[in-house]
Write a protein that binds this DNA or RNA. Structure first.
Lengths: 326, 326
DNA sequence: GCTCCCAATGATAGCGCTATCATTTCCATC
DNA sequence: GATGGAAATGATAGCGCTATCATTGGGAGC
């Protein structure tokens, strides 16, 4: 930076200001500085900048998994907002483990992030402790938070499950089951909505719920379909907590010669790319996950520049995709 | 750090050494230091460390896309190796654009990365210029590089395409087409292999190749299937450059009442999770993408500690998954 | 008992920036 | 021509660490 300053016939501080697009530098001087910088191949050093300014320009992002398209789409949304403003994402994947979440967050403290984006609202007490003590603003992703003292952008998972439940009831199914894996808070909320819808219709039977803690996958969907039909052959509709499982069940129905939706209706959650194209196509809940990333990043950037958002929780809703499988 | 040193009755430099697990600090002193640090809630500052040591502990990772499972799996592999060693990934997605790749790399220079992992071996000249001038070691991902002066971990995309071509020929198909989108170097290499295989069998017809620059997707697969069959209704087998397209074609065949593989055989590339479960299941090439991430990270870590790898190129091969669709 | 050496510890001086507080320049105003 | 104030620029002192070189203490070897 000293070399650039010397080359441009000015002082270091003006070079520093020019590179941060400060309005304090005249256009003429800026031009001289940037051409000197280009000539010398100067690249500013973020570590030094972070140290001197106490702003790291890092945003820590904690999500459960990258294998799950849902969170990757959210990351993409976040990045479109943060990237152009010079912020760098530090991505951590917790693998759905609250302990790993805590460990990652503690490690990220070394980077003194300026902000934190974290999936979900349920954390270990120690994790919440760090978040509260953190000087950096935090926005919770995916779920709408009940706590008004925190910021969140997402959708009501419960209402999504409720919408599926209502849809199946409206279609005339009467022996409707629920199948869940992973059992993270969002999955459980979907089951909650399903239960409400069925209870309202007088169709709720607790035994028709199957919950396993295993990681969601297509093959698990097939397996759980079998288990469900073995025990309750009269099942006429199944709500799977996500599209992976539902797709596995759908393919398995094809192999077993179970015709969907005549013999059995199937519904999923998330609207993964494949779900619109399977035969039959899969009824599901489309979630605005990219938009969640965009809005969460914007809210965070607002908080970083000292603005108070209009309201702490941003509900981006969902869309029921009624397709052939129901 | 000064507070921790004072609290533990020692000097800053010993605290610094203890946190970097230097063997120069006695066990007794280490214990005292860590308990003081825990008590005071001390967290080291990476920016200051990077500035003083000239090692950022950042590894820049450039991939075309995060929406594509292939690269996400590679990221996961990289992270399992880098994370425990204190390195942080800086992830950049180029969106398959060489210009964006250049822009991202230039931005990443500000973070003075200690190493670079970059997908593919074909870059803009300006990008290659940066890589060469970069003090940090670089490993290329996914493809095996022809250039012996560079490091790479991946598989031969050409041989993968060749394996599919040979398989289709061996199965007795004679009017075999190739459908490609995206047209990145890996896609083109697969087409190259396909061509070789068909030429050897005397079955190659240039007009049976359909290449479009559009982004790959399931719906594009369906569309390109239609275009191919409109023009060449006698086609008896199609090799799609990736599983997304092949899946779209497969689903579309179901809708159009084309029976696979009796009327038309389909093959893809990459073995995405869904491909083993569709009805019929999809013949494809399984690529070791997670392992590519692991091995590339290991090679990079080796280079960082001054080791010269046994050989600059690590070919992790692939597996032909012969399934029902052929 | 002396020397030598190594393991353990410490003092000092920056790393490359930016916050802070000057200082200078220039023009509008009276 | 003097004055005030805004716009533009500059000098200085750190930010929180680590590289480098110096120092200390104690045990092995003679």
């Amino acid at each position: 930076m000293a070399d650039v300053a010397h080359h441009a016939g000015t002082s270091m501080i003006s070079v520093s200001r020019a590179f941060r697009h400060s309005p304090l530098v005249s256009e003429a001087l800026k031009t001289r500085i940037f051409s000197a910088a280009t000539e010398l191949g100067y690249v500013p050093n973020r570590a030094a900048s972070a140290l001197a300014s106490a702003r790291s320009m890092n945003i820590a992002v904690l999500i459960p998994s990258m294998t799950n398209t849902v969170f990757v789409d959210t990351l993409a949304g976040i990045n479109t907002e943060l990237g152009p403003r010079g912020y760098q994402m530090l991505i951590g994947t917790t693998d759905y483990s609250p302990e790993e979440e805590f460990r990652l967050l503690r490690t990220f403290l070394e980077f003194s992030p300026d902000g934190l984006l974290i999936a979900g609202a349920d954390h270990l007490p120690s994790t919440s402790g760090i978040i509260e003590k953190l000087a950096a603003p935090t926005v919770h992703l995916m779920e709408i938070d009940a706590d008004r003292s925190r910021y969140s952008v997402g959708l009501s998972q419960t209402e999504g499950g409720y919408a599926i439940g209502r849809h199946l009831v409206a279609r005339g199914y009467t022996r409707i089951g629920f199948v869940a894996a992973q059992l993270d808070p969002r999955t459980l909320a979907r089951g909650e909505g399903y239960r409400q819808a069925l209870q309202e219709a007088g169709l709720y039977e607790p035994r028709r719920e199957l919950r396993v803690p295993d990681r969601s996958s297509i093959s698990l969907g097939a397996e759980l379909l079998d288990r469900m039909l073995d025990e309750f052959p009269d099942t006429d509709a199944l709500f799977f907590c996500n599209d992976d499982l539902a797709q596995g069940a759908l393919f398995h129905c094809q192999r077993r010669g179970i015709s969907v939706p005549q013999d059995l209706a199937l519904a999923g959650f998330n609207d993964l790319p494949v779900s619109a194209w399977t035969v039959p196509s899969l009824t599901t809940i489309a979630t605005p996950r990219y938009e969640i990333g965009v809005q969460a990043a914007r809210m965070l950037l607002g908080l970083l520049s000292g603005e108070q958002p209009a309201q702490p929780h941003c509900d981006l809703g969902f869309e029921l995709k009624t397709r052939e499988s129901t």
